[in-house]
Design a protein around this nucleic acid. Sequence first.
DNA 1: TTGACTGAATTAACTGGTTAGTTCAATTTG
DNA 2: CAAATTGAACTAACCAGTTAATTCAGTCAA
Lengths: 221, 221
Amino acid sequence: MSINETVASEKNSARARWKQDPEGVRANILAVALEEFAANGLSGARMDEIAAKTRTSKRMIYYYFGDKETLYLKALEAAYKKVRQGEEQLDLEHLGPREALTRLVEFTFEHHRNNPAFIRLVMIENIHQGRYLEQSAEIKSLNEAAISQIERVYSKGAAAGVFREGLAPLRIHWLISAMSFFNVSNATTFSMLFGPELHSAAGQAALKGDVSEAVLRFVAA
Amino acid sequence: MSINETVASEKNSARARWKQDPEGVRANILAVALEEFAANGLSGARMDEIAAKTRTSKRMIYYYFGDKETLYLKALEAAYKKVRQGEEQLDLEHLGPREALTRLVEFTFEHHRNNPAFIRLVMIENIHQGRYLEQSAEIKSLNEAAISQIERVYSKGAAAGVFREGLAPLRIHWLISAMSFFNVSNATTFSMLFGPELHSAAGQAALKGDVSEAVLRFVAA
DNA sequence: TTGACTGAATTAACTGGTTAGTTCAATTTG
DNA sequence: CAAATTGAACTAACCAGTTAATTCAGTCAA
């Protein structure tokens, strides 16, 4: 009377009950690595520390990822993918140009704020002169969408006469990114040097308003 | 750093044969350390590498600075002092409010561009959550000037009716800093992801114009 | 149905190169 | 001389990556 049959037919739960969960282990390692690299940089992060925070062992990290740099690269790619996926939630098609742009700016501002670990990885990449980003064809392909989204909003607004002519969408994107990114990336030192008021809840709300205002005035006819 | 100091101490020892130049050696170490820390981060920089690039030895670095973290902190302080000194060159008193603000924005934009190593150190500090900046009372005292300079320009403009009321100078400063800083800090990854055109000579000129335009439109009545 | 077999997944202990920091004696300067 | 400064060689800790042995789940032949 087949204990064996029972076990065999429940192979999913049998698997879950005991061990052997390669995908879960991989994902767990990547999540921990993202946090550790974001907190300490590539050279500052410690493999033993990462290992200790996973539910598996150091040996398994090497088993799945080979070496520290590869782990870093995979964590970077995973972070990019996650962030870009989040961006797809935004739908601007049914809005007028000004509303659409306001919405885009506010969304971008919030989205940066909600992904500080990602922001830090990008900072770290810049310190390395993009040595790892460079190796990832995958990441490079993900960025057209951001520009074409602005393109659509901008050309609609320019046609309607509410936005001035002659602005490259890329420059608008740059402006929005600059402020949204800096708000997170430099929060610590800015607060230390100039006081924490802009990073309180009220301060952040005001700043978000300022950023929208600045972008809208910038493109206004 | 201390071309001045070096020259001064060279004058002293011009006749007297060689050696014993503590100030010059110190300054030389700091200058090298700034570059190395900016290029590699605190944990990424190597003391032997720094030593090799100075005109003195690793032993002397420990003699003067004690340990790696202290060296980093002193390099950070020296970098701040140098940058803040550069800012004092700007005189806006004789200009009208709009011209003064344009001038301030363009100067800040250029000044950031001319001090990439400093920018990188600030990024690195942000990754460390300002752990070292925190320890330096000296640095914190240097930043009132930036705000009060904007305050003077802004209140003149508001009084004249060309700037709208109700803006905190700190928020204007934030806006200028955000764009000037991001332009340097994220140049590498931004170019990789969106193409290098904004970081060519022409692109930078356009961007500088955009930043002034954005700030002026933002404060305009 | 069982038991030997396979390959993937996992563990603990180890290794060797690297790197921050030190020792100690020698040299210079006042 | 005594205090400050310097060089060469050393050391102890650290840390990325490895070794080698083990466990587990499924497979297949008898």
